[in-house]
Computed example of a mutant assay.
Amino acid sequence: QALTYALMLAFFRNEMGFGGNNGLTDFKDLLGFDLQADATRIGLFLASALALALGYWACRWIVTSKLGRVAVAVRDAESRVRFIGYRVDRVKLAIWTFSAVLAGVAGALYVPQVGIINPGEFSPLNSIELVVWVAIGGRATLYGAVIGAVLVNYGKTVFTGAFPEAWLFVLGGLFVLVTVFLPAGIAGLLTMLRRRRSESETMQEAGA
Rank of each mutant, 00 (worst) to 15 (best):
A103D: 02
E165F: 08
A77E: 13
I128E: 02
Q36W: 12
P183S: 11
F12Q: 11
I147L: 15
S123Y: 12
F122H: 08
T97Q: 09
R196I: 11
A135S: 09
V152Y: 12
T64A: 13
L24K: 01
A58G: 03
E121C: 04
L7P: 04
G68W: 02
V70A: 08
E78R: 05
S79K: 00
K92S: 03
T160C: 01
A135D: 01
L142F: 05
R80C: 07
P119N: 08
R194H: 11
Q204T: 07
G115W: 12
R80H: 07
A2T: 11
R60P: 06
E15F: 10
R194I: 03
I62N: 01
E165L: 08
L193M: 13
L109K: 09
A145K: 01
E15R: 11
W167M: 03
V88Y: 01
R87W: 01
R41V: 14
A162P: 01
T157Y: 14
M203L: 15
L109G: 10
R197P: 00
A71F: 12
A162G: 01
V180A: 09
V91A: 00
D38N: 07
F18D: 00
L171D: 04
F33K: 03
F163W: 08
Q36K: 14
G185Q: 03
I117D: 00
F11W: 09
V101W: 12
G43R: 06
V105T: 11
R196P: 05
L102G: 07
G188I: 09
G107V: 07
R139E: 09
V74W: 07
S127M: 12
R80A: 15
K66I: 00
R75K: 15
